[in-house]
Design a protein around this nucleic acid. Structure first.
Lengths: 337, 337
DNA sequence: CTGTCGTGAGAAAAGGGTTTCTCACGGGAT
DNA sequence: ATCCCGTGAGAAACCCTTTTCTCACGACAG
């Protein structure tokens, strides 16, 4: 049976069907106002049997909100944004809130257009996100008429920010390696200019203590190869573990080690960072790595922005969310329960 | 100078400032109605000096549209959806149209919730997208009150669908290899159950003619390794080119060949499919591959859904958009101009 | 001079809900 | 019997624009 797209049923129709006024119908459906329980349920029944769904624009016009939040990102490739976005969406969907995704590509003009469009549409709030935790988006989001939460990107000092706890993740990786009996742990990571690189390296040094060694490079497999060539080209003891700044470097390291005949995890354990499924799972052997819990970060960002929109006051500042070690086979060791 | 979030300026304020009625102000700003050019420009000046931006909900309420389209996808990983989404967004942003992104994870209930939410919000149209070109989303989008365009996913027969032209892309890859003088071209691809696998394989066979050979497997690097092991384990002539069903397989093939000491592109040329930057660029050597132009596909989907929303009639059926060869170093040959 | 017509601009309705205000009614207290 | 008050429910205002309808006015033709 094909149902033709029929005219939307309005609250007027519901009221009529239930034999009450529009005002009463509205109050019945929203569980506000005063009326007998009998009236309320009669209205609700009428509504559901008619398939009534309130027009969000009409409702939003008067309530001055749209049940909509915007996610702004310059992470075109979506490596970080998508899990985050999935979390946001998940946290909001059961509140009836939908998510605008705006890719702004580091273009200030484009960013402004998107922000203006979102404000015109009366978004309840904005979540700013990016591909770097230590860079601001190319657009000023202060003094907007709606709350803003920064997730995985830098905001003004007095803003509400959510980031993954790089230091904690780093520590977790090193502790895991130490727990496996590894003693000569090297850290091969990205460019010094990234705040998260220094953050992770710092925690690594603190956790390893004497003998800590950090090699800075780029975020590429290529660099993983080069780092291995460099280390294995030297005299003296070789490391028995390499903690990498991201999964791409880790993959390069693993490939380079394998090509040298070094056994993983027999001779050397390797840990990555990011848990970028496609890289981590395809590496031989699959990478044990640190997951930044971006989805959870997204959920939290969604909850926060909605709370702010509802008028809650939230202590400004940076909230760090814990990472999580994902055990595969590049270290040995069993998955923790 | 910090600007405090001030009350939004309404068209009423503009009218007042310009010394006209609200009706005239509205018509002036929308370039409708009749008035002297002087009045019109006076209103426009007032509006811009006050920074007036119309409330999209009020406007949408009466115009019965929201300047919003929804993109529905079950491609959680975002490999296909993100470029597509970027294209959609790009095509719509200058029309003032924003994009809802809804990840539905193959969950019919979740899909329904999202679709309902979008309809409540009076989206102008919906773009359905997915991770497989030959599977429908787990939700019925027929007989909605808004137009639907299917992009990179299967829709009903009488729907407007947009897909990449797998056969054309396949042909392009083979012709490129033939143009480089390759004569023994093998096709290593994904599972037979995927329509695009058969589509590509068919075009490959037609283009290669005698000696065509297709190896079906999975979409993994692992399978690329296995396929090479299988082929090189046989007696007789080895291929001088391998056309792979996606970039992951191609990467596996390239790695396996390198490990066997086969020179790429000296002895064997390898072509991938998808142009998945992260895989294609990190392969050694970087992959020459087929790009499905998903961003352009997204742009087209955006344009189409908006045209439909504006009342245009579009011939239903499947539109195939051409792919594009991206030349890197796994084949030899120079980039075409 | 009067009737007609085109033009500029405003009044008011519309869009679909929510919220405030008002009111009628009936029961209990005085 | 009268007064007060709590209760259920409806009328109307409101949110902010767009759009239709109406009208006043001046020019022009008869």
């Amino acid at each position: 049976m094909s149902v033709l797209p029929t005219k939307r049923v309005r609250i007027y129709d519901v009221a009529q069907a239930a034999g009450v006024s529009v005002a009463t119908a509205s109050k019945a459906l929203n569980d506000t106002g005063r009326m007998t329980e009998e009236t309320r349920s009669r209205v609700k029944e009428a509504a559901s049997s008619l398939g009534f769904r309130p027009n969000a624009m009409a409702r939003g016009l008067i309530q001055r909100r749209s049940f909509t939040v915007g996610v702004l990102t310059n992470d075109t490739y979506g490596r970080f944004t998508l899990p985050l976005m999935a979390g946001v969406s998940e946290a909001l969907v059961d509140q009836g809130v939908s998510v605008f995704l705006c890719a702004i590509e580091d273009d200030p003009a484009l960013a402004k257009i998107h922000v203006d469009a979102m404000l015109d549409k009366q978004v309840d709030g904005i979540i700013a996100s990016g591909k770097r935790i230590d860079r601001q988006l190319p657009v000023d989001l202060t003094n907007l008429s709606v709350p803003v939460v920064y997730a995985f990107t830098k905001g003004p000092d007095d803003a509400v920010s959510l980031v993954s706890d790089d230091a904690e993740g780093s520590r977790e990786a090193v502790e895991w390696l130490k727990g496996l009996g590894r003693r000569r742990i090297v850290h091969v990571t990205g460019p010094k200019t990234f705040a998260s690189v220094e953050e992770r390296a710092g925690a690594y040094r603190a956790s390893v203590g004497d003998g800590a060694r950090v090699l800075y490079g780029t975020w590429s497999e290529q660099w993983g190869h080069e780092a291995v060539a460099q280390i294995w080209g030297e005299d003296g003891d070789k490391p028995d573990a390499i903690f990498c700044g991201n999964d791409q470097i880790a993959r390069g390291v693993v490939d380079a080690l394998r090509e040298r005949g070094v056994s993983i995890p027999g001779d050397v354990s390797v840990v990555g960072f990011d848990n970028w499924e496609i890289v981590a799972a395809a590496t031989r052997p699959p990478l044990t790595t640190i997951d930044m819990n971006l989805k959870e970060l997204g959920r939290e960002a969604g909850r926060l922005v909605l709370a702010l929109a509802a008028g809650a006051t939230v202590e400004p500042g940076i909230r760090k969310l814990p990472c999580q070690l994902v055990v595969r086979q590049s270290c040995g060791g069993m998955p923790r329960s």
